[in-house]
């Protein structure tokens, strides 16, 4: 099998890889935002509940979560497609990590920001949406970009629940023809080509943001 055929084969799986990533973000972004803010704003029992939900998604081994939901949800009468289950599990797992970044970003803000908003008579929600969140999200954006890369890489797991992503295609090809060296190194390279530009973008963003942080530390 020529290297070109291998690449064409792997590329056929790119659509699924991209779709799982995209649908995963549909779960990850709202979860990260809502639960990160909730953990920041709540106290007592409410905070315990929020933290428990986050920890469930974040601290579980994602490969097992995927299998559990893939096999157990039908028993609970929920017949979701493999695509939906994958996007949900991978998305909420990354969303759990993202929520910690959101909370940390909010907590790292200077208290004076909130107090200045209160002194101006702004409502709590206005302060959160217009003052705190914009600054926290910008400050944490390199972390979010990193988590996007983690999500793309985690999509390789969907090959284990019958979705034909890039990894699945590579395994398929290697079953047709035993030629692991070009097939698997092409697969590694394919993920690298997808993820590395994102990583470089993340570094660029980080450089853009960092001078601001340094100025804050020097005071």
């Amino acid at each position: 099998m020529s290297i070109l055929e291998i690449w064409l084969g792997i590329l056929q799986g790119f659509r699924v890889t991209a779709l799982v990533t995209l649908y995963g973000l549909v779960f990850a972004i709202p979860f990260g935002l809502v639960f990160g803010v909730a953990q920041y704003m709540t106290t007592g029992p409410a905070r315990f509940v929020v933290t428990s939900v986050i920890e469930f998604w974040r601290s579980s081994a994602v490969i097992i979560l995927l299998f559990v939901f893939y096999y157990a949800l039908p028993l609970a009468g929920l017949a979701l497609s493999a695509m939906t289950v994958s996007a949900m599990v991978l998305g909420l797992n990354i969303g759990g990590y993202a929520s910690q970044a959101v909370r940390a970003g909010l907590q790292a803000l200077d208290r004076g920001q909130k107090e200045a908003g209160q002194a101006l008579g702004l409502s709590r929600s206005t302060i959160l949406l217009r003052i705190e969140l914009p600054q926290a999200l910008v400050a944490m954006s390199p972390t979010f970009i990193n988590q996007l890369i983690q999500l793309v890489k985690a999509t390789s797991l969907v090959s284990l629940v019958t979705l034909s992503d890039m990894t699945f295609r590579a395994k398929e090809i290697s079953q047709i023809e035993y030629d692991p060296v070009p097939i698997y190194s092409s697969l590694l390279l394919a993920y690298f080509i997808v993820c590395y530009p994102v990583a470089l973008f993340g570094r660029w963003v980080e450089r853009r943001i960092n001078p601001v942080r340094e100025a804050r530390c020097a005071v």
Binding site: K153, A154, S156, F192, C195, Y196
Partner: peptide
């Protein structure tokens, strides 16, 4: 390179 590729692969 390692950081831009999945552990499974």
């Amino acid at each position: 390179f390692i950081r831009a590729t999945p552990v499974l692969v």
